[in-house]
C-alpha cells in the first residue's frame, strides 16, 4: 500500500491559472458526480462541465470544468459545493416540515 490517495487531485494538462482543469475525486461515484456537475453548470461563468466514471474498478470520478474569462475552476467547484449543501439543507427542512405538519395517509402494513 502506498500512502493514502488524496481526495482530490488535478490531472495533468490543466491550465496554469486553473481556468480549465480536470479534478479527480477519489472514492466518489455518479451519486455526487452528476449532482455536482448539475450544480456547476448552474453557474453562468462556467463554459463547460462534465464528469465521467472512467472504469468500474477505479474508485474515482473525473470532473472537467472550463471557465469563461480565465476565472478559476476551483473557485467554481467550491461555490457549487456550498450551493449543493444549501440545497440539501433546504430539502431536509422541507421534508421534516411536511412530516410534522402535513395531513397524510397513515396505514398499517402487514409484514
Amino acid at each position: 500500500m502506498a500512502q493514502a490517495t488524496p481526495k482530490i487531485r488535478i490531472l495533468q494538462g490543466a491550465e496554469p491559472d486553473l481556468s480549465a482543469a480536470t479534478y479527480q475525486i477519489h472514492d466518489e461515484s455518479h451519486t455526487i458526480g452528476n449532482a455536482l456537475r448539475w450544480m456547476i453548470m448552474k453557474n453562468p461563468k462556467v463554459e463547460f462541465c462534465g464528469y465521467s466514471a472512467p472504469h468500474p474498478s477505479e474508485n474515482h470520478i473525473n470532473m472537467r470544468i472550463q471557465m469563461y474569462d480565465g476565472l478559476s475552476s476551483l473557485t467554481a467547484l467550491l461555490e457549487a459545493l456550498k450551493n449543493l449543501d444549501d440545497l440539501c439543507v433546504t430539502i431536509d427542512e422541507a421534508y421534516t416540515h411536511s412530516m410534522q405538519n402535513d395531513q397524510y395517509e397513515r396505514w398499517d402494513e402487514k409484514s
Binding site: I8, I10, I32, A35, L36, L77, L78, L81, I91, Y95
Partner: peptide, 22 residues
C-alpha cells in the same frame, strides 16, 4: 433525512480537500 446527512458528509469531505487544494 439519513440520505441527506450522508450527502452532506460527502460534500463536506470534498470541500475540505478542495479548500486544501486552493
Amino acid at each position: 433525512p439519513e440520505s441527506i446527512k450522508v450527502m452532506r458528509g460527502k460534500i463536506a469531505s470534498i470541500r475540505e480537500a478542495a479548500e486544501a487544494l486552493l
